[in-house]
């Protein structure tokens, strides 16, 4: 059994336009992915891909006008989407924890750092304050906060962005989670600090034997800190597999375009303009969601694309994946 298995997740935004006509934005259109114990999976995509929405659905954080249409998210065999709020609360912050994008706003500004780490422990287990405080100091030391005893008494505003992100990582680790979800964990941090934080996060995750789901728009983060990658476009995972394989031999036209768009791979003054508009979730094309901007799309793309297995664990959702690679599988 996989640690986490998301199956055919559909989420729509339902609202009205200026003239009161009903409008449906199809934000997630059948997201499926699995995450094994101890794996680090990068979920990558651009604006409108639905990366963060997938996580929100998973964590039970969907709010109107977002509406869960169908799908399951099995965590250790339990469907998170069918759990009531109380049961979900017992999992969140304990078996599943989260590291979010803006550390400064995710910490309680009027509570000492140490107390916040104590509270998250006491919320899930009957531990004494002294015990929890000791673990808080341990955790802060582990995430590289120098002089942890003293810094535990400090308030969030006394921490820099990078340090606050370390504190969030400490909090995420506090209850020995089996799954850590990191939503753009280093966006907004400087390059040298980003490297420090990612090194720390991935080594601690490995140490604890937990699994990591990283949401990011940064190809480099996935390339260097994940084992597997899932590429999202318009609410669909178009390609997934081991990082080396997907990045080394991208099969789906969108993955190819995305990788070709990194500064390292583009030629100055080259080629025609790229279709850079985010997908219009209110008017997605029939069949393949990428077909209206795909350079190799043809009539067959009007129908639902098949999930093609290319190699062990490497699959792409496309009618036109390279045939020799298909034979390989």
């Amino acid at each position: 059994m996989s640690l986490l298995s998301i199956e055919d997740l559909h989420v729509h935004f339902v609202g009205e336009d200026r003239l009161g006509r009903p409008v449906t934005a199809r934000a997630l259109n059948g997201v499926s992915l699995t995450l094994e114990q101890g794996e680090r999976l990068g979920l990558v995509g651009e604006t409108g891909a639905g990366k963060s929405l997938t996580v929100q659905a998973l964590m039970g954080l969907l709010r109107a006008p977002a509406r869960l249409v169908r799908g399951r998210a099995l965590f250790e065999g339990v469907d998170l989407l069918a759990l009531d709020e109380a049961k979900l609360n017992r999992l969140r912050g304990a078996a599943i924890s989260m590291v979010v994008q803006s550390p400064k706003t995710s910490l309680d500004p009027v509570r000492r750092i140490g107390d916040q780490i104590v509270r998250i422990q006491q919320a899930h287990a009957p531990v004494s304050r002294a015990q929890a405080w000791r673990r808080a100091i341990d955790l802060l030391e582990k995430v590289g906060v120098a002089d942890a005893e003293r810094r535990a008494m400090a308030y969030p505003h006394q921490f820099s962005g990078g340090m606050a992100q370390r504190v969030l990582i400490a909090m995420a680790l506090a209850n020995r989670p089996r799954l850590i979800v990191a939503d753009e964990p280093t966006t907004g941090l400087d390059a040298t600090v980003q490297a420090q934080v990612l090194d720390l996060l991935t080594s601690l995750v490995r140490e604890e034997g937990a699994s990591l789901l990283v949401i990011t728009h940064d190809i480099g983060v996935v390339a260097h800190y994940c084992d597997k990658v899932a590429v999202m476009f318009a609410g669909v995972i178009v390609e997934s597999g081991p990082v080396e394989q997907v990045f080394g031999a991208p099969a789906h036209p969108y993955t190819q375009a995305l990788l070709a768009a990194t500064p390292e791979r583009i030629e100055a003054g080259g080629k025609a303009p790229r279709a850079g508009l985010p997908p219009n979730l209110r008017a997605l094309p029939e069949g393949c969601v990428y077909s209206d901007r795909c350079p190799i799309a043809d009539a067959s793309c009007r129908t639902e694309p098949p999930q093609r297995l290319l190699a062990l664990g490497h699959q792409a959702l496309c009618h036109h994946v390279a045939p020799q690679r298909e034979a390989l599988a």
Binding site: E46, T47, H217, I219, A257, L258, A260, A261, T262, P263, I266, E267, A268, G269, G270, K271, P273, R274, A275, G276, P278
Partner: peptide, 20 residues
């Protein structure tokens, strides 16, 4: 502040403008 594939288009344009 732009998405990767949008960024690529702008970079290509800037490269071209620099050349021309």
């Amino acid at each position: 502040s732009l998405d990767l594939s949008v960024r690529a288009g702008i970079l290509e344009l800037l490269g071209e403008l620099k050349r021309d």
